[in-house]
Design a protein around this nucleic acid. Structure first.
Length: 431
RNA sequence: GGAGGGGUGGCAGAGUGGUUGAAUGCGGCGGUCUCGAAAACCGUUUAGCCGGCAAACCCGGUUACGAGGGUUCGAAUCCCUCCUCCUCCGCCA
């Protein structure tokens, strides 16, 4: 959510922001609703003032036993109330319309966000590692879905049997690898000062609203029960931990992490990434969330990216980082850097972590503030950041493909060996 | 699942229809006193919205006592629904 005063007083700022996103906003509608709303409020409040004053007089008259005068005054107030009722209906309509409009407006891109209309215009800002040259080694790399199926560690058919398409079963060392990754990620974050949480994976509407998934993206949310949802990412619950709270400034920045399963409808993604475990309805992810002072949030974003990079470097997986252009920027983000890992099956880099600075956009929606008596009176909105660190599934796919051997086995990255208890993943004996 | 009792300002805790945005205590802030500190004393201390304005937390108004509805000229105070916390019983891991 943006500051309504900004839209009112500097609509040109939003014009520019929306242009950068290659979107638009209904400025005329905003201005007419806003004007109407304020007009109605002015009248209704004036009437209320009148009513409140008269009511006090009635109290006094009753005390003096002047019943007739009191009755006459009551009649006057009833008429005022009728008018207030009419106006209140109008005000509610205006409030709802304004709220509807405001909650559908995305965040304003930061200055450093490149121009561009879609992901083809994202700007690469860093490249690390060199993709393995399988041709030089004399064999054709297999995609992880083939490797996983023949090793017996990925079972797509049974995932469909248990649930539906895009649900997967990990078997044997596949499960072990998933668990190893999760533990390795969490252990690393903990070592680096992140506080670990185990939140519920079911959340309510207010929670999804706070981080910006609702109301605009209800179709993407995974519904359970009439008004509850399975979280699409731990960002949602970690950020909302502090909804309607004011944090002492000296406790910032805060670095949080959590492992949770994530659920996505993936509505509209039919036909894309249909094979393997790249895009599924349920996947495991370790998430990072930060709460920061406004002047510090850009630095914290760098720290967050560094944390995700650390994991990939230790895993020795080649990646590059792209600065998302305006047209590819997510709804709540003011700036996002995607880390993309090399996937031989795609012969390209594929998103594995998305680190965003949301500025005060989510904080305003979720009402998360901070205090700093030495700097200002009262409280202000803080900045929220989130990033994957990392998803287990896509990381597993990347490991399988990048660490595969000619015989179809998979070498275990060194940092995971203590967790895996082996150096190589071979064929599962029981299928 | 059943029975009962609560949800009030940063915290504790009054308040059962009228000038209560809300007593009192604690805490916070400012001051007096002090070499300084403590103690004591004095004062002060909620937020959103609308308007005045170029602006201001400067003034006026309005809203808010878990949330939403209702009764009333008027509700923290009465009624209804929901949420939530606590106690007891039952059930289950």
């Amino acid at each position: 959510m943006l500051d309504i005063r900004l839209l009112r007083e500097h609509p040109e700022v939003l014009d520019a922001a929306m242009a950068k996103r290659h979107g638009s906003w209904d400025k005329e509608r905003f201005q007419s609703i806003d004007a109407k709303r304020r007009e109605v409020i002015a009248e209704v409040e004036q009437l209320r003032a009148q009513r409140n004053a008269t009511s006090k007089q009635i109290g006094a008259l009753m005390g003096q036993g002047k019943k007739d005068e009191a009755e006459a005054a009551k009649e006057g107030v009833r008429k005022i109330n009728d008018r207030i009722d009419e106006l209140t209906v109008q005000q509610n309509e205006a409030d709802e319309a304004l709220h509807e409009l405001m909650t559908h407006i995305p965040n304003i891109p930061a200055e450093g966000v490149p121009e561009g209309k879609d992901d083809s215009e994202n700007v690469e800002v860093k490249k690390w590692g060199t993709p393995r040259d399988f041709a030089a080694e004399g064999f054709e790399p297999k995609p992880h879905w083939d490797l996983g199926t023949s090793l017996g560690i990925l079972d797509f058919d049974r995932g469909v049997k248990l649930a539906e398409s895009r649900f997967t079963v990990l078997a044997g060392m596949g499960g072990r690898l998933e668990r190893a990754l999760i533990n390795y990620f969490l252990d690393t974050h903990a070592k680096h000062g992140f506080k670990e949480f185990w939140p519920p994976v079911v959340c309510n509407r207010d929670t999804l609203y706070g981080t910006g998934q609702l109301p605009k993206f209800e179709d993407d949310a995974f519904h359970v029960l009439p008004d509850f949802f399975l979280i699409p990412t731990a960002e949602v619950v970690l950020t909302n931990l502090h909804r309607d709270e004011t944090l002492p400034g000296d406790t910032l920045p805060r670095h949080y992490t959590a492992f949770t399963p994530c659920f996505r409808e993936e509505a509209g993604s039919a036909g894309r990434d249909t094979r393997g475990i790249i895009r599924v309805h349920e996947f495991d992810k370790v998430e990072m969330v930060m709460f920061a002072r406004p002047e510090d949030s850009d630095n914290q974003l760098k720290a967050m990216i560094g944390e995700a990079e650390f994991l990939l470097q230790e895993l020795k997986l080649p990646y590059h980082i792209v600065n998302l252009c305006g047209g590819d920027l997510g709804f709540s983000a003011r700036q996002t850097f995607d880390i993309e890992v090399w996937l031989p099956s795609y012969n390209n880099y594929k998103e594995i972590s998305s680190c965003s600075n949301c500025g005060d956009f989510q904080a305003r929606r979720a009402n998360i503030r901070y205090t700093d008596p030495s700097q200002f009176k009262g409280s202000r909105y803080l900045h929220t950041l989130n990033g994957s660190g990392l998803p287990a599934g896509r990381t597993m796919a990347a490991i399988m493909e990048n660490y595969q051997n000619p015989d179809g086995t998979i070498t275990v990255p060194e940092v995971l060996r203590p967790y895996m208890g082996c150096d190589v993943i071979g064929e599962e004996k029981l299928k």
